Every structure is written in C-alpha cells, then in structure tokens.
Simulated scan of single mutants.
Amino acid sequence: MSNQRLWALAPLMVLCLAGCGRDADKAGPDGVAAPSNQTLAAAIADEGDLDTLEGVVSNGGLSEVLEGKGPYTVFAPVNAALGTAGSELAGEAMKAQSAALLRAHIVPGALTRADIEAALARGGADGVQMRTMSDGLLTFSKDGDVIVVTAADGATARLTGAETVVSNGVVQPVDGVLVKAE
C-alpha cells in the first residue's frame, strides 16, 4: 500500500481507536465498572428496595451531604430491615434521630465489596474495623461467602443485593440496622 493511501486511512483509524477507548474508560484497571454519574442520594432514591431509607435521609437533612463531594460508603438498610422504624423516624421531632441513624451507617471513603474482601483477606480472623460518621466502630467479618457487619453495640447486618458505585461513593445494601433499638 502506498504512503498516500496510509495517510488517507489515518483519520479513520484514529476514529476507530477512539471508539474502542470509550468502553475502556468505563472500566478501571481491574475490569470493575466505573462509577455512574449519579450521587449517593440519587442512587438511594432510584433503588426501589431503599424507599424507606430515602425517607429517613430526607427527614434527617442529609440529602445535601449525600449529594455532595464525598466519597462515602452508605451501608443502606433495605426496606424490610428498617421495617416500621422508617415511619417512626418521620417528622420534624425525629430529625435528630434520623440523622443519628444515618451517620451510624456511613463510613468515609468509597468501599466496594472487593475492597472489603481484600481487607478481610489481609486482616485475619479478627475481621476489619472502620469508624462511622457517628464515631461508632463497625467490624467486618465473613460468614461463609457473606460479609457481615457488626456495630459496637452488637447490631449486625449482612451485605445483600448489588452494590452501586456512584460519583461520590458506594451504596452497599444491608439486611439489618446497625443500631440496636432502645
């Protein structure tokens, strides 16, 4: 092929390579999908099994925080886990309790399940601990293939469902509330 034809094909090859790069931008070096453009608040609002939590977020006045820069990981109790507690936390009189419950379920940083699994593999039998936004301590451990989260007061939950990686963190659905009812 002559040099003239190669130069004529060069723009077409550049376009083809640029198109191939788009999918690569969506995945990180480990092949995990890149975060969506959503925020934590939007992801919670969009997930049908987190409707009750969305109400608690709104009542607790933390919508702006979950729309903000982050990153945070929200261990998000599903509807069944919150049960009647979600409706009990409604209203102006329960704003502080709503905010306190949420802060007990939020840790700084974006933690995927792969991150937690890797930390557990390094951490040994005692598990791995992280501080929440309420200065509580969460301990992560394994029960078979399931990741279990235990709060300092003994409340436990299991990571369940699919995590959602967003622009300002990660939503990790859990099947329990990480604060014992008083």
Rank of each mutant, 00 (worst) to 15 (best):
P35W: 10
A100I: 08
L17N: 08
D25Q: 02
E163Y: 02
D25E: 10
V78I: 00
L82A: 05
L17M: 11
V166L: 10
R131S: 14
A151T: 12
Q172C: 09
A43Y: 12
M130C: 00
D126C: 03
A121C: 04
V74S: 03
M1D: 03
G55S: 12
E92I: 05
A80R: 04
D153F: 11
G124F: 08
Q97E: 15
T156R: 11
K95A: 14
G31F: 05
A93I: 13
C20P: 11
D25W: 07
R158M: 04
R5N: 08
N3Q: 13
K180I: 11
S58D: 13
L101N: 03
A81L: 01
T84Y: 02
V65E: 00
L12H: 04
P11K: 02
A18R: 05
I147K: 07
S141Y: 06
Q4N: 12
G176T: 03
A85K: 13
R131E: 13
V148H: 07
E182I: 10
V179Q: 10
G109D: 04
G144Y: 00
K180C: 00
A155R: 05
A162M: 03
G55Q: 11
A162S: 11
L66G: 09
G28M: 06
C20L: 15
G70P: 04
G161L: 06
Y72H: 02
G19H: 08
P29Q: 09
A114G: 14
D25S: 10
S134P: 05
V171M: 02
D25N: 05
V32T: 14
V165W: 01
E47M: 14
G91V: 12
M13K: 07
N3C: 03
L53G: 10
E54R: 14
L40S: 01
A34D: 10
G123A: 13
D46H: 13
G48T: 14
F140A: 01
G21N: 14
D126M: 13
T139Q: 14
A151M: 09
A110D: 07
L102Q: 02
T39C: 07
N168W: 02
G123W: 02
H105G: 01
A100V: 02
K26D: 09
A96W: 13
A24M: 13
A93W: 12
N168T: 00
C20D: 07
S63T: 15
R158W: 05
L120F: 04
A85E: 12
S141M: 05
A18L: 11
D135Q: 15
E182R: 13
D175R: 09
R5Y: 13
K180Y: 00
G124D: 01
G154D: 03
Q4A: 15
L120G: 03
A34C: 08
A157L: 02
L62M: 11
L102C: 03
T73L: 05
